[in-house]
Design a protein around this nucleic acid. Structure first.
Lengths: 339, 339
DNA sequence: CACCGGTGGTGAATCGATTCAAGCCCGGGT
DNA sequence: ACCCGGGCTTGAATCGATTCACCACCGGTG
């Protein structure tokens, strides 16, 4: 007994040709109702399921869209994925979600996998600031859209949030509360978002008449809660100690908050904190976290839609677009002096 | 110019047959070094990438493992995914992660997709308590492993955590702190985990000489932070008001905590809270959360390994196994009276 | 009656990689 | 001189669905 029924089995059993079975599935209106009913009955009986690989082979590409993010442990990216998945499924596509873990090597590996899979497109938040991975990937002629990143070259679409403005919003807010020295807890400098947020922070300082030395850098190699705890410990050791911290994302901010809390440092009285992303857990933190909100779901959705447009474009008339969304400051207890 | 180079193009360019090219890729040692070098050079030159769909078609199944969870917004499942992905990639497989959102209909749709994709196996946390979806799925002869669920029928492997014991741990802890009435915030009753945790809670009450009426049910249709906030509001309206809450997961607990906090109810003095899962954010909450820790990463890894064993099993000698892991209570401030 | 258009159905070619029986070449054994 | 075996390569068959040129049939028309 054949392990799994194929289209030929259905055709034989129903007394029609394979072409007709294919038509029943893909263009039902082109088949006489009674023939169609007979074929459908056999399909049901045999439990026939068409093989994606066979149709992919024929079509030349798969009906799967890849999403490569830095870290699914970050709820921000979960929201991006949600938005992308919704848009993709509306178009009948599946989404394959992968983590590069900020490692260019893993990113390269996954891009290779995507090329083998002949995915119909890739949504990617690059881990490799040099752009070499994507440069190499482009020879496969698979469309890709940058997520949360401005395009460095015009060869593709991108959806980003204005990170310079986000950094500026955060630091302006702290300055207007009277702080004159701000720590910046960030990842190592090769991520564009991190650099842009710093640039925004510096420009806010500049507008307030302060020089770059007013921004105290506390770099961290990862962007998660544990790294935030480390950063918090280092912050406590600084002399003089800044009175405010701006964190490159909420996970870091939660970690910093935890270690300050454990050391008996009061937030916001002793040190004010502002995070970035406004993940759901920011509001639920020990001290509700002031944060720069990013429209993550919208970003995922728009990225997927841009990708679909590019992928559907037969006649080469596609014009690459770069969408920039605006962030928004959400003020909570972690940065406002209780009155 | 052909849009993308195939094995035939490589063969022609290198002056060998397609079979040889295939050998260079899959059994390099069976090819003369100089031939191999020549072929590899052409592969590099043309940017050839083998087509996964073609090899899948031949092999009959793909090298992708599916993971279907209730909700990736829950960090618990992110950890499960991490564990599974690590094990899968070690075996050279990709993982496709999907959310059923606790909807049996979406679950069915995804299972259908997996069958079309001929995935090599499925890891699933069922959303459909009736088991009908998986029952229907089993006709495709694709192995699957239940995650976070005990097997109802012996036709498959499973990895679960002892939820009865988890519920018992949580409620015993509350009872030993002097509470005599405990609210149980849970999802609607069709999830097995939810039922088992309740059963454990009831058994703990029973051991303390209390009847089931001491457990006040606050059902909720979803299992996220927002649903927790709703549940918190309902909890506040209860007369008499329980002095302790056990939540079926940490997201609910965080939501409950938020709404109690907003209403000025002190935790743990007025109401004690115990959550479930011990996600990373539990420790970072407004009041650090007591929680029942589940070995999520281990569960994902073991599930993937069981699946690989079953999938690799040619000769039908595979024996289905059901692994049960033990949970652990992590006591924090949300349930301990400050002295 | 010959011709025409339209409808419903056929079956072979095709996609790209794998696999395997068969062939070739060369050195060594008899 | 002949045969054997092993190393290396070939080329055709195969997987399953799609696609398309082609055919059979039927009612209507000139």
């Amino acid at each position: 007994m054949a392990r799994v029924a194929g289209i030929k089995d259905v055709a034989r059993q129903a007394g029609v040709s394979v072409g007709t079975v294919s038509n029943v599935i893909n263009r039902p209106e082109a088949v006489l109702p009674e023939t169609r009913a007979r074929v459908l009955a056999v399909i049901e009986e045999l439990g026939y399921v068409r093989s994606e690989s066979a149709r992919q082979l024929r079509a030349g590409r798969s009906r799967i869209m890849a999403l490569l993010v830095l870290d699914m442990g970050n709820p921000f990216f979960v929201d991006v994925a949600r938005g992308a998945e919704r848009a993709a499924r509306a178009a009948g596509l599946g989404v394959m979600v992968c983590n590069s873990g900020q490692s260019p090597a893993e990113e390269a590996e996954y891009l290779g996998l995507f090329a083998e899979q002949r995915v119909c497109g890739v949504l990617v938040t690059p881990a490799d600031a040099t752009g070499r991975n994507l440069e190499a990937f482009s020879r496969h002629h698979i469309p890709f859209v940058l997520v949360d990143r401005v395009p460095s070259s015009p060869g593709h679409c991108a959806v980003s949030v204005d990170d310079v403005r986000g950094g500026s919003l955060a630091v302006s807010h702290l300055l207007s509360a009277g702080h004159r020295s701000v720590a910046y807890v960030s990842g190592l400098g090769d991520l564009h978002q991190i650099r842009d947020r710093r640039e925004g922070a510096l420009s806010a300082l500049d507008r307030a008449g302060l020089g770059p030395e007013a921004l105290v850098e506390i770099p961290s190699d990862r962007l998660d809660v544990a790294a935030g705890r480390d950063a918090g410990a280092r912050l406590l050791g600084l002399v003089p100690r800044p009175t405010a911290v701006f964190c490159a994302n909420d996970l870091l901010a939660l970690g910093v908050l935890q270690s300050l809390y454990a050391a008996g440092v009061r937030v916001p009285q002793d040190i004010a904190i502002v995070g970035y992303d406004d993940i759901e857990f920011a509001a639920a933190a020990a001290v509700p976290l002031t944060s720069v909100r990013q429209p993550a779901v919208v970003m995922g959705r728009m990225a997927a839609e841009l990708l679909l447009q590019e992928a559907d474009d037969e006649d080469g008339t596609h014009e690459h677009r770069s969408v920039v969304l605006q962030p928004e400051l959400v003020v909570r207890a972690s940065s406002t002096t209780p009155h």
